[in-house]
Amino acid sequence: MIILAATPIGNLGDASARLVEALGQATTVAAEDTRTTLRLLAALGIDNRPRLIALHDHNEKQRAAEIVGIARDEDVLVLSDAGMPTVSDPGYGLVAEAARAGVEVTAIPGPSAVLTALAVSGLPTDRFSFEGFVPRKPGERRRSLAALAADPRTLVFFDAPSRVAQTLVDMAGAFGGTRRAAVARELTKLHEEVRRGTLDELAAWAEDGVRGELAIVVAGSEGGAVPLADAVRQVGELVASGVRTKDAAREVAEATGHPSRELYQAALAAKG
């Protein structure tokens, strides 16, 4: 079978007894980074040296069928660098291939950066959506955020420290600067920090730079459209990224509920 195994996201003490046992008995491990797996084995004091197969974003399509073939005859342990495989990490294609081939898939549960960030955020946890990594390109990022502006669920994102300051500014523009949010940094590690506040406050805090691995948790919309001023600002940001004013107004209208014509005219007026 295929065994998806969650690994620590920072603190080695979070390695479960089941994970340690599985690593000690495994004959084949498919790993996002085989060097990381070797370091994990050493850190946990495990002498077993299984066959290691690299399974990452760039080769998963090519390796999935091979690994599923191996799993017909023996268990294959699947690891990402941190957390649960398939969750913003390699593994989805492998599981899909195993399902098509009738090969059993199970999991060894454990740490998850998504759930940990959500739990410590202080924001509603009854309904949430994990949105993965925020898009890198400014125009794509703003369009993606605009499409989520009216979503009532708590939203969880990953982001790089080099981009988080601008991301928070764009989130304030898309969701409104008073929307509650939290930035969780270095979860379970020595310098863990959770910063809570409005998006405007968090954007100001991040101006001087933020280090470490990050998750951003944003409260969902509490109903109604995004304030008109914020919606017009979204249109302006899309136009600045190269989108035609009419197309930008239509896109923001679909996300916020404001009439497209009203946004278009307001955007033209704002240009002066």
Rank of each mutant, 00 (worst) to 15 (best):
A160M: 12
L115T: 14
Q234V: 14
D151L: 04
T27K: 14
S88Q: 01
R153L: 04
L40W: 01
D247F: 08
P111R: 11
S221F: 01
V235L: 10
T167Q: 15
V156K: 05
A82N: 06
S80Y: 03
P259E: 15
A31T: 00
T154E: 01
S112H: 11
P111D: 05
D230L: 01
E251T: 07
Q25Y: 07
L238S: 13
S221C: 01
A240W: 09
G197H: 03
G139T: 04
L268D: 00
A65R: 14
P124G: 11
A43W: 11
V103S: 02
T178R: 06
E74S: 14
E213W: 02
V217A: 06
S80E: 03
G139F: 07
V217E: 01
D81V: 12
G122P: 06
L263C: 11
E207M: 14
A184Y: 00
G220D: 00
V87C: 06
D126Y: 11
M1R: 11
A249R: 02
E222S: 08
A119L: 13
G132I: 07
G139N: 06
T106Q: 12
N11H: 10
T198K: 05
V156N: 10
R153Y: 12
G209S: 14
A96C: 15
V232K: 05
P135R: 06
L145V: 02
A182W: 00
A248S: 00
V95C: 14
R18V: 00
G223W: 08
P111S: 11
P109K: 02
T178Q: 06
S241Y: 13
V20G: 03
L94C: 06
Q265T: 08
D159S: 10
T198S: 09
G69R: 06
S162Y: 11
G69T: 09
A240Q: 13
L44C: 10
H56F: 13
A240T: 13
D73Q: 15
D14E: 08
A269F: 03
E97D: 10
R233S: 09
L148Y: 03
A82G: 12
D247I: 12
Y92A: 15
T245L: 15
D89A: 08
E254M: 12
F130V: 07
Q166G: 15
A150M: 06
A146K: 04
R196C: 04
L263F: 08
V68M: 07
M171H: 00
R63N: 14
V226S: 02
L118K: 09
P124D: 10
E32F: 01
D200T: 14
D33E: 01
P259M: 15
G220H: 01
A119Y: 05
L187G: 00
G212V: 10
A253W: 02
A117I: 09
V183S: 01
R250Y: 05
H56A: 14
G236L: 12
A203Q: 02
I70E: 06
S241C: 15
S80N: 09
D81E: 12
A101H: 11
A150I: 01
